[in-house]
């Protein structure tokens, strides 16, 4: 195996950390921007000087929808875009409140949910409600 590919790539490294319960973002040492989703090159400046920092977990709901299903397929659920405090935006869902009660501008906090087959970052309303 060539030395420059001996370590897992950023996508694998992200999910490995998530499996350990840690939600990590990349930070660019060249331009200072935070990056999500994880990449090999910074999309802001092209540098490969990306290092990992644990996300603060603080975010704000930027957009929200409720996916409706036929009753036999299960209850409706939330899909939202979350603006992270560090700058990047990610898709997720807001839990512990009714899906239609999720509002644009709502302050939310990240939780790594490891209860399913694959770990996933979800959000709860900030300051309780969890």
């Amino acid at each position: 195996m060539p030395a420059d590919t001996a370590a897992p790539g950023p996508e694998q490294a992200y999910f490995d950390a998530l499996a350990d319960g840690r939600f990590m973002l990349q930070h660019c040492g060249a331009c200072g921007e935070s990056v999500f989703y994880p990449r090999a090159l910074c999309p802001h400046c092209g540098a490969d000087a990306l290092t990992w920092r644990e996300a603060s977990g603080r975010g704000t709901v930027h957009a929200t929808s409720v996916v409706r299903r036929r009753p036999e397929q299960g209850p409706p659920y939330n899909v939202a875009l979350i603006d992270l405090e560090e700058g990047p935006r990610m898709m997720s869902r807001v839990e512990t409140v009714a899906p239609e009660a999720v509002r644009i501008g709502m302050a939310v906090t990240a939780v790594v949910d490891r209860s399913g087959d694959d770990p996933v970052v979800v959000f709860h309303p900030a300051g309780g409600g969890a």
């Binding site: 996508e11 999910f15 999500f36 989703y37 930027h62 957009a63 929200t64 929808s65 996916v67 659920y77 899909v79 939202a80 875009l81 990610m90 898709m91 997720s92 869902r93 644009i104 501008g105 694959d118 996933v120």
Partner: peptide, 25 residues
């Protein structure tokens, strides 16, 4: 998409619905 599909967006509908929610807001 490994960063979107875990949340079950009904694509492409949910993506445009999210954009619509923002336009309405």
């Amino acid at each position: 998409d490994p960063f979107e599909s875990p949340y079950g967006p009904r694509q492409p509908i949910t993506s445009y619905a999210l954009a619509a929610s923002r336009h309405m807001h």
